[in-house]
Design a protein around this nucleic acid. Sequence first.
RNA 1: UGUCUCGUGGUGUAAUGGUAGCACAGAUGGUUUUGGUCCAUCUAGUCAGGGUUCGAAUCCUUGCGAGACAACCA
Length: 565
Amino acid sequence: MSKPETPEIKNNFIYQEIDKDLAEGKNGGKILTRFPPEPNGYLHIGHAKSICLNFGIAKNYKAACNLRFDDTNPVKEDVEYVDSIQEDIKWLGFAWEGEPKYASDYFDQLYDWAVKLIKKGKAYVCELTPEEIAAQKGTPTVPGTESPYRNRSVDENLDLFERMKKGEFKDGEKILRAKIDMASPNMHMRDPIMYRIIHKPHHRTGDKWCIYPMYDYTHGQSDFIEAITHSICTLEFEVHRPLYNWFLDQILEGESAPEVRPRQIEFARLNLNYTVMSKRKLLELVQKGIVAGWDDPRMPTISGLRRRGYTPASIRMFADKVGVARRENVIDMGLLEYCIREDLNKRAMRVNAVLNPVKLIITNYPEDQVEMMETINNPEDVSMGAREIPFCKELYIERDDFMEDPPKKYFRLGPGREVRLKSGYIVKCEDFKKDADGNITEIYCTYDPETKSGMPQSNRKVKGTLHWVSARHAIDAEVRLYDRLFMDEEPDGHKEKDFKEFLNPDSLRILSGCKVEPFLKESKPLDGFQFQRLGYFCADKESAQEKLIFNKTVGLRDSWAKVNK
RNA sequence: UGUCUCGUGGUGUAAUGGUAGCACAGAUGGUUUUGGUCCAUCUAGUCAGGGUUCGAAUCCUUGCGAGACAACCA
């Protein structure tokens, strides 16, 4: 049972702007936000920030948030993405208002408005090639020049636009442009393209259209149609805002004042170090087989994080902690890791797994004896109860937990040293065996029967406590250790080098022959656990009783590793 | 040599004319049957100059630095 979350007090500037609008009595006091993904890729952690913002605002103002697919480009879009996006939003714990919406639902209205603009002399059909348009567009410092088609008659424009719609022209032959100002210091106001011809079926509208509206002409009008009050987007759209408002002004001209006039507000997108966030680059990693798919646990996608073992609560916590502002930012991966540890520490069951096993033999323990030792499931939450784990003469412990010649600050096992076996006995190392290569093959200990966990003698101070599994009862598992995908903090921040040059060759290490306690046999895909003393792991989506596979979500904080450096 | 935006500890983010706070990271100590958790303490900041003001991170100004904008992408 997840506890109801009390929405935090929100201090970011967007809440302040909304409060201001409310105070001024705008939009009849209504609030409605939207999350508008293009279905051309999977959602990533950056989208999660936007989702938490938009749906969070809705929650905090007791309002709603729409899901709207910005599907104006059939060349890039696909229903696979429409489906994954919905799954990811739901998994994050949010619900949109009503049915999902699509910009393509508004194609008819958009077309009618385009005709209105033509009639007003505010749009024209242009026949320049893309190269010519680029050339006459000018540069940010040099004004553009006007298209020779700019001053066609309204009738001619109407006729040509209709014939564009009817499919009389080939892709790229003609476009519809807004007539604004070729000398504007804002490049987006230099007669931007409203419609282009694409003879390709659309995932929703099929063959109905061969002309498709551009983003700028679509987004604000879609917001208006849905009566979105606050259209929140990332900073790169800031220069589009005048155009957003211009189109709205045009379609609204001559109409009675609407109750809701959408307003665009921009915030700084999320950047995470040691990864890439652009859908194009993520797609490239998928298509080139560098990762195992959009949900590869090394991907910063929501589906990847899910498969990695991240919880929805941890991602929402992360979004809260990074905040919302207008300044460029790079968030340390460590913060994401902190959030998942924080969440899982409270909820994950503690289990025993030995990743790199070495056998420990208790020489004075009866040969065939098996004791069931009680162990607490989660010291952070006693309501999770306890369970029993089998203990016997031969155990596996972690290879790292024994040193032939340990330094003073090493609290684990070494010749003559004593350690506690968690929930078991205190044992003392008497001897060990090595193979020809010098690898430890067996460790011999004696145990003190009076130190069984729970008995008075067990309270003796011992420096170290080890996790273990019974050799006779342990089951084999594969464990996949993940590390950051890139070795550079900003892999796509180098002009001369491709981001793929910074891939971490050790981002995935597969361990087979790991020994886990019998309880884990029943684990189901995506179940998360703490492997005692190691970290958080979750059963992979392909894990099954016959072949257990666990993904490392994140390690425990490790102050020994720091000392060791 | 355009227009717009942004500069607060290492990283994020508050303070919007009135004591620069919080989180992460880092350091030290305590507790601990996880070298985890938890607790305590500490380190560390307003880009620079000038101005307005009793008082400036906040307002004005100049500079410096960073980012966005020239796709028939969104």
